Amino acid sequence: METIETIENNGIRARIVVDPDPINPRKDGLNKAYALTIDTHLGQYIEVDEDGGPLAEAWARISWRKDAVEVFERYARIYWDATTFFDHKSDGATVIWYVLGAEVPHLDLLSPPYFYIRFEAEQYRRWAAGEVYGVITERMTWWMPVDPTDERTTMLWEESNAQWGINGYDLARWEAEEAAPYRVDAVA
């Protein structure tokens, strides 16, 4: 497992590595937004969600129109009080993300639905691009010989913790900095 960056302080080091087996964030059961994949660039990309949520049938009825995205978003806002986010990038599937207005009170969101939808979309994009990391925390350990006449000691790094599934390098770096504190009194 290749280390991307190492942060070392006070006998603790944190290594940032690429997560070798990241879980698709759309399959972890924690999603609150629906993702309606409308273009996979001729099958080059996988569909974000297989069913597209409760408004997939409405999309299927109008998807042939040139103004289908605008009509769908308007329909979702007017009839379902939905919050939508149209996510169109050249390096991935084109998706309409949405949350139905009736579901918002039950979702326990910490921010307005639009920001949460953007967060879920960005999380998925990072996973699809392979930008999921792990932080392995290690402590410096001195190994003393069993034989008292042997004066050699060995310093080794011993793994104390590992955190996987961190979406985005910036968050992984922050986690690594938190794991390897700069202050001496912060070391437990």
Score class of each variant (00 low, 15 high):
residue 1 M to Y: 06
residue 1 M to H: 11
residue 2 E to F: 03
residue 3 T to G: 06
residue 4 I to G: 02
residue 4 I to P: 02
residue 5 E to G: 08
residue 7 I to N: 08
residue 10 N to G: 10
residue 10 N to W: 13
residue 11 G to Q: 11
residue 12 I to T: 03
residue 12 I to Q: 02
residue 13 R to T: 05
residue 14 A to M: 07
residue 16 I to E: 08
residue 17 V to F: 09
residue 17 V to M: 14
residue 18 V to Q: 09
residue 19 D to C: 08
residue 22 P to W: 12
residue 23 I to P: 04
residue 23 I to Y: 06
residue 24 N to D: 14
residue 26 R to G: 14
residue 27 K to H: 11
residue 29 G to L: 09
residue 32 K to G: 05
residue 33 A to M: 06
residue 35 A to R: 03
residue 39 D to G: 09
residue 40 T to D: 13
residue 42 L to R: 14
residue 42 L to P: 01
residue 43 G to T: 03
residue 43 G to N: 07
residue 46 I to L: 05
residue 48 V to K: 02
residue 49 D to L: 06
residue 49 D to N: 09
residue 60 A to P: 02
residue 61 R to A: 12
residue 61 R to F: 04
residue 63 S to H: 12
residue 64 W to I: 10
residue 65 R to N: 13
residue 69 V to S: 03
residue 69 V to W: 06
residue 75 Y to T: 09
residue 75 Y to G: 05
residue 76 A to D: 14
residue 77 R to I: 03
residue 80 W to E: 13
residue 84 T to P: 13
residue 85 F to N: 10
residue 88 H to T: 15
residue 88 H to C: 15
residue 89 K to Y: 15
residue 94 T to Q: 06
residue 97 W to K: 02
residue 98 Y to N: 00
residue 99 V to K: 03
residue 100 L to C: 10
residue 102 A to K: 15
residue 103 E to Q: 13
residue 104 V to D: 01
residue 106 H to L: 09
residue 108 D to S: 14
residue 108 D to I: 03
residue 113 P to H: 00
residue 114 Y to R: 09
residue 114 Y to D: 06
residue 119 F to L: 14
residue 120 E to P: 02
residue 120 E to M: 04
residue 120 E to V: 05
residue 121 A to G: 00
residue 122 E to L: 12
residue 126 R to C: 08
residue 130 G to P: 00
residue 132 V to K: 07
residue 135 V to S: 13
residue 136 I to H: 07
residue 136 I to W: 01
residue 136 I to C: 11
residue 137 T to R: 13
residue 137 T to P: 11
residue 138 E to N: 07
residue 139 R to I: 06
residue 139 R to Y: 12
residue 140 M to A: 07
residue 140 M to Y: 12
residue 143 W to A: 09
residue 144 M to R: 11
residue 144 M to V: 04
residue 145 P to T: 09
residue 146 V to Y: 06
residue 147 D to Y: 11
residue 147 D to R: 14
residue 150 D to M: 10
residue 150 D to A: 12
residue 151 E to F: 07
residue 151 E to Q: 11
residue 155 M to C: 12
residue 155 M to L: 05
residue 158 E to V: 12
residue 158 E to A: 04
residue 159 E to R: 13
residue 160 S to M: 07
residue 161 N to V: 00
residue 161 N to F: 00
residue 162 A to G: 00
residue 164 W to V: 00
residue 165 G to A: 08
residue 165 G to M: 07
residue 165 G to I: 10
residue 166 I to E: 01
residue 167 N to D: 03
residue 169 Y to R: 10
residue 171 L to G: 01
residue 173 R to S: 08
residue 175 E to K: 14
residue 178 E to D: 03
residue 179 A to E: 00
residue 181 P to S: 05
residue 181 P to C: 07
residue 182 Y to F: 01
residue 187 V to G: 01
residue 188 A to Y: 01
residue 188 A to F: 01
